[in-house]
Design a protein around this nucleic acid. Structure first.
Lengths: 206, 206
DNA sequence: GTCTATAACGGGATAGAC
DNA sequence: GTCTATCCCGTTATAGAC
């Protein structure tokens, strides 16, 4: 039986994922979630003790799903240029499948939600990318790139890859794009973003 | 009387601005807002007919406050390099004073909220920056920069400037920054971001 | 484990006195 | 314009039968 029918608990979590990510904690109701999972509110509270609890579970998974790959690739043992292309390509593909994850995570982290902080630290994605920083220092020492602040470069990479998804609705309206046009738009960025990052790193080098 | 005491209506709007921006529509209550404005719920509904209505007013102002300057500067009549530096500097300073505006706007635009769309179009900030596009085409024709898609360049500029504010809480945690350190971090970007954009535009030019 | 029914509460909105 | 009191609904959560 490779394709088990999902358990009730899993159906609830699945529905919660969908609705929390789509509408946020405050705008999604347990009734919505129960209905979407084709059960009732009582079962939601049977499996997860409260709405808050269910939300934590969903948020933590979403956070890990998004930020572990980011930290992972940055600390990979790959040549700088290869790594940057791989980063942009992989994260873009990940987000094409789950385009609302970034806005979900960032919007739920407004105001210092203490519970969120715990979720993040345990995910281990909160350390600055030490491997990436070392790599940038070594390349600068070899004269291959200019000396840079790794935090800023990391921020630039994340910004260029995540922002189109964060602002997806505005982008679609502004440029009259549908889903397909939007996907093409971010696919083009698989070339543009690495070129941008690398052009900066290599600029002003004799 | 240069410094009038704010009217009740203005105090309510002010409180709504603070709480909606901080917590979002679904997590802010009319009672919160009334208390924060030092009045009562009845007056909130007296001046604005409903919570939804009050929210629209706040959102529309916030949207204009953020996106009109962006469109404005991009279509300014300035040399390309000067314009880019001005853009980054001005938007950064604007956001240092209201750092949560971007995440507020983008998070409230998840799911195609019809009312939001109207708010945006009337703000006139939804046209692609035609002046900027023409300028990039002219510069490319002159051989000063490579030929580019203006939408992509505009996206890159916005991404690099807005993203640090969108991810402010994560950045602060990840790099142990307080308010002052964060401000220094974004100030450094006033140099880094234009250099990044310009390095890309000028790369691969014989 | 699953359901129906209901308790307990909070939120948006209004009536009506001042 | 401002306030108190209240209505009414939606929401979370639980009790209890099956």
């Amino acid at each position: 039986m490779l394709k088990n029918a999902p358990s009730t608990e899993e159906k609830i979590k699945e529905a919660a994922r969908k609705l929390f990510v789509e509408k946020g904690f405050g705008n999604a109701t347990t009734r919505d979630i129960a209905e979407c999972a084709e059960t009732n509110v009582a079962l939601v509270n049977y499996y997860f003790r409260s709405k808050e609890n269910l939300f934590q579970a969903v948020f933590q998974e979403s956070f890990a799903q998004t930020f572990l790959p980011i930290a992972g690739i940055l600390n990979d043992d790959l040549p700088l240029e290869v790594k940057i292309y791989k980063f942009v390509d992989h994260i873009t593909e990940l987000l094409k499948r789950a385009p609302m994850l970034p806005i979900f995570i960032l919007s739920e982290m407004r105001g210092e939600h203490a519970p969120m902080c715990r979720a993040m630290q345990q995910a281990g994605a909160m350390e600055p990318a030490a491997g990436f920083q070392r790599q940038l220092e070594e390349e600068a020492a070899k004269g291959n790139i200019r000396p840079v602040d790794a935090r800023q470069v990391e921020t630039n990479l994340m910004a260029l890859v995540l922002f189109p998804f964060l602002s997806m609705n505005i982008l679609k309206m502004k440029h009259q794009m549908g889903d397909e046009a939007f996907n093409n738009f971010v696919d083009e960025r698989k070339k543009i973003v690495p070129e941008t990052i690398l052009a900066y790193l290599r600029s002003g080098l004799g």
